[in-house]
Write a protein that binds this DNA or RNA. Structure first.
Lengths: 174, 174
DNA sequence: CAGATTTACTTAATATTTCAAGTATATCTG
DNA sequence: CAGATATACTTGAAATATTAAGTAAATCTG
């Protein structure tokens, strides 16, 4: 990734408007961002999968339901809050439904819409496994960081997140 | 994710050793980290896929080869540098090979090992599409950040990265 | 208010990733 | 140096994710 990201390489380019290559600090952040996006979910999933039979994404979906009014959300809202496409969510909810952790309910106000609802069993499952998962998140993500680092990194990632999809920022603000 | 991450919820837990739930700043960083791991690759891939017919991972693999001596690396080294399992890499290299961008070569020193080698065509493809990709990375990731933010965020992510898999840290240090 | 468009999803097909073996070579141990 | 173990991959199958197409209900438009 160094070549074709930083400026040490390829003084000639295909088009003649040379882009601004990345400097050393940018390259470092970039590589770590790429590294984390590929490795972090897997690292956390080992524990979750083993202990709770959930992927990180599934856990996140259940957690988003657990904090909603009446433990229910419209599929499209839930897709938003779990950073996913409706299609991906639909498949995952089907699986969570088959485990008895979630059920679907037609929406009364809008005939097109469906609510995903966390069942009592799903809530219990989440409660049971949340502590170990939070411990794991803490162990991998937070134990090495000072409060100040947590705050500033959160700010910076927020600025990036905002640009990934401007409509989504509100998600982590509340 | 609020419930079962922060401390506003479930004063009683299954086991009685209550974990330390996340505080507001921790929760914010955590949600943004999760959000970025799920959305950032896709956001960058739109451009790459359309213009260069490459996923972010494939681009990364080619870039890692391009900066290696002789444009070649052992499969296991390449797996390390691209944060992937050998199996995943093997499948992807097969595809890159079928496009003529990479070829495999037996390693002379070790009969078990294989070198993945960037072909001239692969190097040309990378050179052709690198500028637009870097522009896109810059647009989404860096344009909103000050040099100071880039530096400090890089540091913090490094500390997390180190804990995801201690053996891997060296990767973004050089 | 009829036809066209948009919204909210689901589903089938495809692509990608992971998992579990399998193969072959290298190294280590008694 | 023979047998055991470890390393470096590859491959096929299973799980997961994305894409494209389809259905049905709501809304918008002339």
């Amino acid at each position: 990734m160094s070549a074709f990201l930083d400026e040490a390489v390829s003084p000639e380019s295909a088009m003649d408007d040379e882009p601004r290559w990345l400097d050393a600090d940018e390259r470092r952040l970039w590589l770590r961002l790429v590294g984390l996006t590929t490795l972090l979910p897997g690292a956390l999933e080992v524990q979750l999968k083993r202990d709770a039979g959930l992927s990180l994404f599934e856990y996140h979906v259940l957690a988003m339901l657990s904090e909603a009014d009446g433990h229910a959300r419209l599929m499209s809202d839930l897709a938003f809050w779990s950073n996913s496409s409706l299609s991906r969510l639909s498949h995952v909810v089907k699986r969570l439904e088959s485990q008895g952790w979630v059920r679907r309910e037609a929406c009364l106000e809008d005939g097109r819409a469906t609510n995903a609802v966390l069942t009592a069993k799903g809530a219990a499952h989440l409660e049971q496994h949340a502590p170990a998962h939070v411990d794991e998140v803490r162990r991998i993500v937070f134990d090495g960081l000072s409060p100040d680092e947590v705050r500033t990194a959160g700010e910076v990632l927020g600025k990036i997140f905002e640009r990934v999809d401007p409509a989504r920022l509100r998600q982590t603000e509340s």
